[in-house]
Design a protein around this nucleic acid. Sequence first.
DNA 1: TGGTGGCGATAGCCATAACCTATCGGACGC
DNA 2: GCGTCCGATAGGTTATGGCTATCGCCACCA
Lengths: 301, 301
Amino acid sequence: MTLQELKYIVAVAEEKHFGHAAERCFVSQPSLSAAIRNLEDELGVKLFERGKTGVLLTDAGERVVEQARRVLAEAGRVKTIAKSGRNPLAGVLRLGVIPTIAPYLLPDLVQALRSAAPQMPLDIEENLTANLEALLRAGSIDAAILALPFDAPSIETLTLYDEEFQVVVPAKHPWAKRKSIAIGELDPVSLLLLPVGHCFRNQILDACGEFASAPAPGRQGNSLETLRSMVASGLGMTVLPVTALTPRHAQSLVKAVPFDEPRPIRRVAIAWRSGFPRLAALRAVADAARGLKLPIKAAVG
Amino acid sequence: MTLQELKYIVAVAEEKHFGHAAERCFVSQPSLSAAIRNLEDELGVKLFERGKTGVLLTDAGERVVEQARRVLAEAGRVKTIAKSGRNPLAGVLRLGVIPTIAPYLLPDLVQALRSAAPQMPLDIEENLTANLEALLRAGSIDAAILALPFDAPSIETLTLYDEEFQVVVPAKHPWAKRKSIAIGELDPVSLLLLPVGHCFRNQILDACGEFASAPAPGRQGNSLETLRSMVASGLGMTVLPVTALTPRHAQSLVKAVPFDEPRPIRRVAIAWRSGFPRLAALRAVADAARGLKLPIKAAVG
DNA sequence: TGGTGGCGATAGCCATAACCTATCGGACGC
DNA sequence: GCGTCCGATAGGTTATGGCTATCGCCACCA
């Protein structure tokens, strides 16, 4: 049974004439006759009564043609659905973002994408890098925005931007008036960090060279905002990425001070499975992120 | 787009593995790959993301496959419907019957068919021969039971039985005691007939040789039962087929008397469009009619 | 009654496409 | 590195679907 054959029987049922039906299907009359004969043989039922007084539908033919119409209608919807899915900038994009980026990038990014790709809503999954990798491999998300280095097999990445780190101290801390601070000056005892698992934590530790001992549990905050609050409360100092230090997040109780040159940075990228077919969607995300008015150094290419 | 291709993408979507899907579809893996590539090209959408970590459905693929399942389900129902229509003894048989046969044949015929072809209900159309022919040609009925001769192009007939005619007179009429009556003795003045259009009327007139003048309108009855009543009322005499003269219809006020040999008869047949595909159904009707316990001489073959 | 025209079926040929086997190429894992 | 797995590619063969030409049947008509 073929969709073609079903089209043919519907045409014959409507035209009640093999020749006219063949014309309508853009085939010769013998081709159509043969196809219908095939179908009748396969189904084991005569669908048409070929008489001198035109073509009549048998009782079975009536019902089969009716069902054939239904099949063809459903088949037509396949094409419609495919067409609607043809635009890579249409349809939900499931995007993972690490927690130290999401709250600072997404508000602006979502808004920028709303005009750049209005038919592409974002489905955001905020999670740690390791979890995002698993979700990405499993196909549960389409792409992830995270910090490099991120090496995983069958995963490709594109750098979005670099952002520097700054020391955040209480407003009344002696360092608050400093122009810059050397990495070596940081004291592990007073440094507040995110819990293990956050890549941002590791990046700071890497930048500073490993400290002798891990910070005590009490010296951890579960989010950058928690860390900022802890600093404001005088519990110590921390290091934050500058996207977390825009005027929007400024508060009088803390002060951010740059590092000495060369200032430590993190490189933010978008990652996807190699072979992911909607590269244009990722391109749109990347372009949107790079064009944001944030204290970042956008990558090119 | 092919039903085959749709089967393939559903298989791949379920197996998430081209090789296994191919095996399930009883084709080689390259064949399946090529078919899917074809479909993707035709639809203009990548349906699957071929990755090292197995095969993933794209967003569009998800929706297309879902729709493909629907198409295949509907296509499957075509076969089911065809199968249910494969038995020629199943499904309504639309049967036309002339008014001078219907009331005497159908009660027994319907009952006989109920056991011979229990899945074949009859849809009865009672009408004059000329109208039945039109309905038959138009395909509004499948077959007709009527009296021969019935010559029409593209129509075939099969004789069911012969039945003789008898003279019906009031019980107190002098002829009521006769053993038989010669055709020539009939008097057009006292003969009650059906209206013009009934073949039975013509058959009587033919058997008697044309009378000089047509009977007056008052000497007509619209059905054989009306004619019988008119005879009982003493309005005259008539001629009826013997199937209308079984004990079931006997009444003491009239008496039926045979004709002299050779007795006039009518030949009852079933007619259908040449090419009508459910000949077995007609055969069942014919066999049922011939086997009835009626005062008929059943035809053979 | 023989001719004519309409219609679906048949015959015979051809091109395409569908399928097969064999092989490739990339990627992962030991 | 080397083997293995998996989908893609290459090349050849078959079968399917399509075409033209023609047939056979029947109704209609002169």
